[in-house]
Design a protein around this nucleic acid. Structure first.
Lengths: 175, 175
DNA sequence: AAGCGCATGTAAAGGGTTACATGATTGC
DNA sequence: GCAATCATGTAACCCTTTACATGCGCTT
């Protein structure tokens, strides 16, 4: 159901087509909830069937702009305010660490170095994004303020995983 | 494919039945990669078909103990050493934050308080677990050392999300 | 007129959850 | 004898990914 609410949330900002939303998802939400275009188009059809969104305008090349309906807006708000949070997190990166004992320490170190580099570069990216938002480069709308909070989480998560990878290397070296 | 390698990894420690592995998954890997028993039984059948594991002994109540084969062991090791890491992380908790602007600040604060509490309690749990491991309560095997690294990640992740939730509340209050 | 990017979709296959179902053994 | 727990599985459904498919519009 999460994708459903993600789409409603994006449409709450204003009308958009499946294509627009796909791009928006890639740009902003891919870090916390990836979604591919077939999935998005299908879910938009369902939302439309259920009356939570409706076709606003049609453009060239069969472009369909969707608009959120009143019941759709009610639905997202209710999700945000009253539903319980699903805390499940899956990380291939972390499950791998559980099995490090199966390979040679040198290979583990090599792996952890690459992981540290990856997470650090991600963290740096989000930290820079956060700083730009703080300088006001994306305006001061409510939406921007919420996005700032999400970016903070992405930055912190990646930074702490980078530090974890570093800590793990030290742990392996000192014994 | 990740579940597949997770099962092979657990079986690399020694023979176990689907039931045993389900429990083991619940206890140790649920934090980083949840798996339900139907999924596990199905994957074990496939692994057996593919010759990566084999039935070792059969016990009471149709209990089947599986044992990893040489090619199975080769397969996990190869996964760990040579395959590229999938860094995708999905978090409903974080995608929600992107849409905070849709609800009242008081509701956001209430929500963030609950989130902070949840993540902090998880963090405390894993930190305690890590401390127990450091006191040697789980022995000093290679497996324990790897698990220690995974637990460290779980602790850090949850701690940083708890801090993020706290930071977000302050951010909302100071403006 | 050719090629690129816009824009929308379908199809197939696999991953994952939830509910249902069954029977055996152990402990009280 | 009864209840709890062990132990395995099937079925139905939904979510997600990857590959395939198509046609329009703009730019060069």
């Amino acid at each position: 159901m999460t994708l459903r609410y993600g789409l409603l949330g994006l449409l709450a900002e204003g009308p958009a087509s499946g294509y627009d939303i796909t791009k928006r998802f890639q740009e902003t939400l891919a870090a916390v909830w990836p979604a591919s275009h077939p999935q998005i188009y299908r879910e938009l059809s369902r939302l439309s069937e259920d009356g939570l969104i409706e076709v606003h305008t049609t453009g060239p090349r069969g472009r369909k702009e969707y608009k959120i309906t009143d019941s759709g807006l009610k639905e997202v708000k209710n999700w945000l305010a009253n539903s319980s949070v699903d805390h499940i997190i899956r990380s291939e990166s972390l499950i791998r660490s559980f099995f490090f004992w199966l390979i040679e320490p040198e290979e583990v170190l090599k792996h952890l170095q690459a992981e540290e580099k990856y997470f650090a570069s991600q963290a740096t990216f989000y930290e820079g994004y956060a700083a730009a938002k703080d300088r006001g480069e994306f305006g001061t709308s409510k939406q921007t303020e919420s996005a700032r909070i999400t970016v903070e989480a992405a930055a912190r998560l990646n930074r702490s995983l980078a530090e974890w990878a570093k800590w793990s290397q030290e742990k392996l070296n000192h014994k």
